[in-house]
Write a protein that binds this DNA or RNA. Structure first.
Lengths: 337, 337
DNA sequence: GGAGTCGTTCAAACCGGTTTGATAACCGGC
DNA sequence: GCCGGTTATCAAACCGGTTTGAACGACTCC
């Protein structure tokens, strides 16, 4: 019923001019006279013409597409995607999202992006082996967000990386608590990954820098509420004299706070708690969690810039952008009792 | 550096055969002999050949792309997308995600999908005016998820809709509470939208059906934790004799529960609470919220089926699929004190 | 043995854009 | 009035696939 979509040929016929001229006029390229351009634009508007991306991608040998893999349930990824989309648009690119799910691994997600002829890949917190990422990068520029890749930076490992300095972030949290007067600190860690390791290490160094390493504790967990719940129960049961807690993520912090609320422990009166990610969860009206922000806006901008530099700027060298995290103080921290 | 991606011509040359044959062989179409097909497959594998989607979309005049608009921060949407992706893959389609954000309205999200030549649009909880959706549907088949469109179904309004029966969902919650022995019920509503209205109305009817309308209360809010917080404070301050609460969403329920935890109110001993959405939040270890599930798996399957029927099956009539919600009982409901 | 059928293959046309090389019209300068 | 240089235009080639129509040999059937 809906008669075939108008093509550039239809526009040309209506404007009484050749296809080539129409193509130039529609893109505002030099060539057509002002009068002709106006006529073309009018004809296109009247027909409701829209260029066919597939056709122009084919002719241009470019898609101007950035592919993003994300874990669709991760709130921080969602924030990043939002910002990436905006940044890409500004740079004249479109983004294609590919979701990593339980049933669809990162590898499959990347495949579909490659099929769409994305010109660069932005991978959010990828968990593929580094070797595979490097191999991928040899065909299509890859920008890794959030995860640190090899410290060594061996030759051939040309991946771009955008991340925040996790150690510095934890340090901000520790400094904040110590500045408020806390001396007995606890870190609830996120487990085995690179990110959790960096944060744990950052905690150890920060407390040592304040000469408090003898009194600091670390509890291991994973990046989930349940880890916070376990840690809080352990703390209360053992009767530790801890007054300040640095969690490796907001979700951990929320689990922790939930137990405290149930047990009637005053926050921040008796215990101060700092989260990590400054996720929307932390910002909720009734939570108001003090947290370390990874600056999703800046990360997104840097990642898109890195990709565009490779594509349009001819950069070939590896770039690693390490952003400084920022502490957002809300209502879960105060001087110790 | 990376020498030009191999094309079908390269494969043809390597297999010593024409382009046309290669095209057929790669798709397993009838024509080429078994021996030829094998040779082509081998050559393609050796070259690491992948077909160019843009080129084949152009030639086929089909993209086999389903466009999805979603609110990237909405956890329920994230779940749906996960399932939609799986269902689409099974049906031989790819999906393109387009995020609706603060800075990028639904209209813009739809535009980019149309530019990608999506063959159908799946809109998650769209808020565009109905007239606009109908207009859109005249060019590209549209499937609306979650939102009820006009009750009237006037001629020309051929949108497909997949949703759950909100009234029935709330009814399940009410029946559950009444079955446990509750008589004093409270509904915390989600505000002005169609969905909130359906749930509120469902609550009214359900309590009336049990002859409890005289003792039931409704508090208005919005679909956020803050609404739950306000409602809980109001309940405690006013000293209502309510024992069972039905929230219009999980987020409302969580805000509600948070206040109760802080105030030391026993859940489910003193108060029972039911949420709506069965979102990942509800399933968290330390929350274990009883909630109404909208069956994201089924919704996704139905939505993809609806789209595919239009595209491949030639269906032109409007289809409205109303799924029955399901109650997931966890630990926030029990008999009243 | 000639017509018809089948299986296999190829070259050419096509999809809807962009780019190139050629052509024509117009300009001022000498 | 002829020349070099713009400027505006067009037709044709091209991008990388798919599809069509024709060609060819082998085989079957009268």
């Amino acid at each position: 019923m809906a008669d075939r979509r108008p093509t550039i040929k239809d526009v040309a016929a209506r404007a009484g001019i050749s296809k080539g001229m129409v193509s130039l006029a529609l893109r505002g390229a030099p060539g057509p006279s002002a009068e002709t351009a106006a006529r073309v634009l009018r004809a296109a508007a009247e027909l409701g013409y829209r260029a066919d991306r597939a056709a122009s991608a084919l002719a241009l040998r470019r898609t101007r597409l950035l592919g993003i893999t994300m874990t669709v349930r991760n709130a921080f990824h969602a924030e990043l995607v939002e910002e990436l989309q905006a940044a890409a648009e500004e740079a004249g690119y479109e983004v294609v999202l590919s979701a990593v799910t339980r049933t669809r691994g990162e590898r499959a997600a990347v495949e579909t992006l490659l099929d769409s002829r994305c010109e660069a890949l932005l991978l959010l917190g990828p968990e593929l082996p580094a070797a595979e990422l490097v191999e991928l990068d040899r065909r299509t520029p890859v920008v890794v967000l959030g995860r640190r890749t090899s410290r060594t930076g061996r030759a051939g490992e040309d991946l771009d990386v955008v991340r925040t300095a996790d150690g510095a972030g934890v340090r901000l949290a520790v400094d904040h608590l110590v500045g408020l007067g806390h001396r007995e600190l606890l870190h609830v860690g996120g487990g085995d990954g690179d990110i959790a390791a960096d944060r744990r290490e950052g905690f150890r160094r920060a407390v040592a820098a304040h000469g408090l390493d003898g009194r600091a504790r670390v509890v291991e967990g994973e990046f989930l509420e349940s880890a916070g719940v376990r840690a809080a129960r352990q703390l209360l049961a053992a009767g530790w004299s801890t007054t300040g807690v640095v969690a490796a993520s907001d979700r951990i912090a929320l689990g922790f706070l939930d137990v405290l609320a149930r047990e009637g422990v005053d926050v921040p009166g008796r215990l101060s708690v700092v989260g990590y990610d400054d996720s929307p969860l932390a910002q909720l009206g009734h939570v108001q969690l003090t947290s370390v922000s990874q600056g999703p806006v800046d990360q997104a901008r840097c990642a898109v810039r890195a990709a565009v530099e490779r594509l349009d700027g001819g950069r070939v060298q590896r770039a690693e952008v390490v952003l400084e995290p920022r502490l957002v103080v809300r209502r879960t921290t105060a001087p110790p009792p």
